[in-house]
Computed example of a mutant assay.
Amino acid sequence: MINWKVRFKNRNWVIAFLSQLMIVAELVLSGLHSMGLVHFQLTDSIQNSILTLVNAVFVLLSMLGIIQDPTTKGYKDSDQALKYKEPK
């Protein structure tokens, strides 16, 4: 059984889950529209607007340090990374 409480505490998992949920919603809407069950269609301008908004949110989250490097614990750089003169 999936422990949802633990998964929702992991910000990386939540961000991945939400982005995949949006992709599924887009696919479902497209499928329902092609079957004639829904008259709403995602036009290119709507898709571009949504993509621009999502990109802006991810840039903001990255700048705030909320999207973190999964190879380190917490939100700071590891001691090893702080000592680098050049990237490995």
Score class of each variant (00 low, 15 high):
K73C: 06
A25L: 03
I46Y: 08
I66C: 11
Q41A: 09
S62A: 07
E86C: 08
N10Q: 03
N10H: 04
S45G: 07
V54H: 01
A16N: 10
K9D: 13
H39C: 04
S45V: 10
V57I: 11
W4A: 14
D77L: 15
Y75C: 15
S49R: 12
T43Y: 07
K73G: 08
I23Q: 07
V54C: 03
V24A: 12
K5I: 04
I46G: 03
F58N: 13
K9P: 02
K88N: 10
S78M: 10
L37D: 02
K88G: 03
K76E: 02
S34Y: 07
I15L: 15
L21M: 07
M35N: 00
S30G: 11
K9Y: 07
A56L: 03
S30C: 13
K88D: 04
K73S: 13
I67M: 00
V57G: 01
G65F: 05
I67A: 06
Y75P: 06
K76F: 06
W4L: 15
K9L: 15
H33C: 05
T43N: 01
N55S: 15
Y84D: 10
M35W: 10
W13Y: 06
L64I: 08
W13C: 01
G36P: 02
T52F: 13
Q68W: 07
R7Y: 14
N12T: 11
L51S: 06
I46C: 03
S45P: 00
K76W: 02
H39P: 00
K73R: 15
T52V: 02
V54L: 10
E26I: 05
P87R: 14
I50K: 10
L60M: 13
K73Q: 12
Q68L: 01
Q68M: 03
L27V: 12
I66F: 14
T72V: 12
Q68I: 07
L32Q: 01
I50N: 06
V38D: 10
N10D: 13
H33L: 07
Q41I: 14
F8T: 13
H39F: 00
S78A: 06
M1H: 09
A16K: 04
D44L: 08
T52I: 07
R11A: 11
S34A: 13
T72S: 06
V14F: 09
A16H: 08
V57Q: 09
H39N: 10
V54R: 13
I15G: 00
S34L: 14
K85H: 05
L64N: 06
I66H: 06
V38K: 01
G31Y: 05
I23L: 14
L18K: 08
A25P: 02
Y84R: 15
N55Y: 12
E86R: 15
S30F: 11
S19W: 05
N48A: 15
P87K: 14
S49C: 11
G65C: 00
Q80D: 05
